[in-house]
Simulated scan of single mutants.
Amino acid sequence: MTPITGTAAGVPFTALPPAGDGPAPLIATWHMLDAPRSDAAFAAALPMHDVPAWRVHLGMPMFGARMVDGSMDAAIALLQQDVLMAAMHPFVRQATEEFPAALASIREQLPVDDGPIGVLGGSLGGAVALNVLACTEIPVFAAALVNGAIRMRSVIDLFPGDYPYDAESERVADALDFVAGADRIAGRAPLLAVSGELDHPAFREDAADLVAALGDGAELLPIPGLAHPLADEPGIEPAPQLPLAKQVDAGLTAWFRRHLAA
Rank of each mutant, 00 (worst) to 15 (best):
1 M>A: 15
3 P>M: 09
3 P>W: 06
7 T>L: 13
9 A>P: 06
9 A>T: 06
11 V>P: 06
16 L>K: 04
24 A>Y: 00
25 P>R: 11
30 W>L: 05
30 W>A: 12
32 M>A: 12
40 A>K: 05
40 A>F: 04
44 A>D: 04
45 A>G: 11
45 A>L: 13
45 A>N: 14
45 A>I: 14
46 L>P: 06
50 D>L: 03
50 D>Q: 08
55 R>Q: 11
60 M>Y: 03
60 M>F: 03
60 M>D: 04
62 M>N: 12
64 G>N: 10
67 M>G: 00
70 G>F: 13
71 S>L: 03
72 M>T: 15
75 A>I: 06
75 A>E: 13
76 I>C: 05
85 M>N: 13
86 A>Y: 11
87 A>R: 01
92 V>Q: 04
92 V>E: 02
99 F>C: 15
100 P>I: 10
104 A>C: 02
109 Q>K: 14
112 V>W: 03
115 G>A: 00
116 P>S: 01
117 I>L: 07
119 V>A: 05
122 G>D: 12
122 G>I: 08
125 G>I: 01
127 A>C: 10
129 A>L: 02
129 A>P: 03
132 V>I: 15
133 L>W: 08
144 A>C: 03
146 V>K: 06
151 R>K: 11
151 R>N: 09
152 M>Q: 10
153 R>E: 13
153 R>D: 12
159 F>Y: 12
163 Y>T: 07
176 L>Q: 07
177 D>V: 04
178 F>M: 14
178 F>I: 12
180 A>C: 05
180 A>M: 06
181 G>Q: 09
182 A>H: 15
183 D>E: 15
186 A>N: 15
188 R>C: 14
188 R>L: 11
192 L>S: 03
195 S>M: 07
196 G>Q: 00
200 H>M: 15
204 R>L: 05
204 R>Y: 07
205 E>G: 13
205 E>Y: 00
212 A>N: 08
213 A>Y: 03
213 A>P: 00
215 G>C: 11
216 D>V: 04
220 L>S: 11
223 I>P: 08
223 I>F: 07
225 G>M: 07
226 L>M: 15
228 H>F: 12
236 I>K: 03
243 P>S: 11
245 A>V: 09
245 A>C: 09
247 Q>I: 12
247 Q>K: 13
248 V>I: 00
251 G>I: 02
252 L>D: 11
254 A>L: 10
255 W>C: 08
258 R>T: 15
259 H>N: 08
262 A>N: 10
